[in-house]
Amino acid sequence: MHPACPEFSPADEEDIALSSEEVYPRDPTAVNVGVGPAPEPWPDDPRLDPALLAGGDHRNVLDRYRYWSVEAIVADLDTRRQPVHIAIQNWEHDFNIGSIVRTGNAFNVAGVHILGRHRWNRRGALVTDRYLHVHHHPDVASFAQFCREAQLDVIGVDNLPGSVPLETVELPLHSCLVFGSEGSGLTEELVGACSRLVSITQYGSTRSMNAGAAAAIAMYHWALSHASGQAAGGVSSPAGRTRDGADTQHSSLG
Results as ranks from 00 to 15, higher is better:
Ile200Met: 08
Ser208Leu: 03
Asp94Gln: 04
Asn96Thr: 08
Leu166Gly: 06
Val109Met: 00
Val127Pro: 00
Asn105Tyr: 11
Ala239Ile: 13
Ala214Asp: 02
Ser208Arg: 02
Cys176Phe: 02
Ile97Tyr: 02
Gly124Gln: 09
Gly240Thr: 10
Pro138Asp: 13
Met219Ala: 03
Glu22Phe: 08
Phe146Tyr: 15
Ala213Cys: 14
His133Pro: 00
Ser19Met: 09
Ala72Val: 03
Leu186Asn: 00
Pro41Thr: 11
Glu40Cys: 09
Gly111His: 00
Glu170Lys: 15
Trp120Leu: 02
Ala215Ser: 14
Ser228Ile: 07
Ser208Thr: 11
Ile100Lys: 00
Gly245Ser: 11
Val31Asn: 11
Val109Glu: 01
Thr168Phe: 09
Phe8Asn: 04
Phe8Pro: 02
Phe146Pro: 01
Leu48His: 07
Ala150Ser: 14
Pro28Cys: 03
Phe107Asn: 02
Leu177Ala: 04
Pro39Phe: 06
Ala4Asn: 15
Cys176Gly: 03
Gly192Arg: 08
Phe107Gly: 01
Phe179Pro: 01
Ser181Asp: 15
Asp57Thr: 08
Gly162Met: 13
Glu40Trp: 08
Asp76Val: 05
Asp45Thr: 10
Gly245Lys: 12
Asp158His: 11
Ala11Pro: 01
Gly204Asn: 14
Thr29Ala: 12
Ile217His: 04
Trp42Cys: 02
Gly116Arg: 00
Asp158Cys: 10
Met219Ile: 02
Ser228Lys: 11
His136Glu: 05
Ala231Val: 14
Tyr220Gly: 13
Arg59Phe: 07
Asp57Ala: 07
Val31Arg: 14
Gln249Leu: 07
Asp129Met: 02
Asn159Asp: 15
Arg47His: 11
Gly192Thr: 06
Asp49Gly: 07
Glu14Phe: 15
Gly104Glu: 00
Thr29Val: 08
Leu160Asp: 05
Leu77Ala: 09
Leu197Met: 15
Gly36Ile: 05
Ser184Arg: 15
Gly234Met: 09
Pro161Ile: 12
Asp57Arg: 04
Ala246Cys: 04
Gly162Gln: 14
Gly36Arg: 04
Ile88Trp: 00
Arg207Pro: 03
Ser20Met: 13
Leu126Thr: 12
Ser20Ile: 10
Leu53His: 09
Ser99Pro: 01
Asp78Leu: 12
His133Met: 04
Arg148Trp: 06
Gly183Tyr: 12
Ala106Ile: 07
Thr29Tyr: 06
Val127Arg: 03
Leu166Trp: 04
Pro172Glu: 07
His133Ala: 05
Asp27Val: 04
Ala213Tyr: 09
Ala11Glu: 14
Val169Phe: 09
Val235Asn: 09
Leu197Gly: 10
Asn159Phe: 06
Ser142His: 06
Gln202Leu: 10
Ala144Gly: 07
Glu13Pro: 01
Ser205Arg: 11
Leu52Gly: 01
Arg123Ile: 15
Asp49Cys: 13
Ile16His: 11
Ala216Met: 12
Asp76Ala: 13
Tyr203Leu: 10
Asp49Tyr: 05
Leu152Thr: 02
Leu77Cys: 10
Ala246Thr: 09
Gly212Val: 04
Ile97Cys: 05
Gly204Asp: 14
Val140Ile: 15
Ala51Ile: 07
Ile114Lys: 02
Val84Lys: 00
Asp129Thr: 03
Leu77Pro: 01
Arg196Gln: 14
Thr187Cys: 06
